[in-house]
Amino acid sequence: MNAVANQDQQTVRPQPIPHEREREFHVPPVNIVESNDHYIVEADLPGVAKEGLEITVEDNELTIIGRRTDFQEVPNAEVLYQESRPGDFRRVFELDPTIDTSKINAKMQQGVLTLTLPKAEKVKPRKISVTD
């Protein structure tokens, strides 16, 4: 029963963002969904190519860094109006210990990063058949 109760709290929990120190980074918006056998994390990283991604797992911490190699600038042009903000993206998540970090899969498509974080085999819900 305990295991069930714990599951609610141990998710891919975003860390509080230290505002002062990391002002040069933007925090990308994410969606996080958990299913029986994996978590899916999606992050909006407009302007980041596959090459600009840096995803690291250290201990229980997953860090996503997205670098915009050629930020929106148009060479030799004057900026008339600008809402986008230069700077790279960064977000850190605390990982649920049930995640098998060796099997994390990342996909980048049109500025959206999709991470699939599979749970280790042993924690997947299992059906136990009763023998007579």
């Binding site: 891919v12 969606n31 996080i32 969904v33 958990e34 299913s35 029986n36 999606e42 992050a43 909006d44």
Partner: peptide
């Protein structure tokens, strides 16, 4: 795929 499973965050 978002419809299956438990949703923790929808910031996008």
């Amino acid at each position: 795929k978002k419809k299956e499973g438990e949703v923790y965050r929808t910031e996008r």
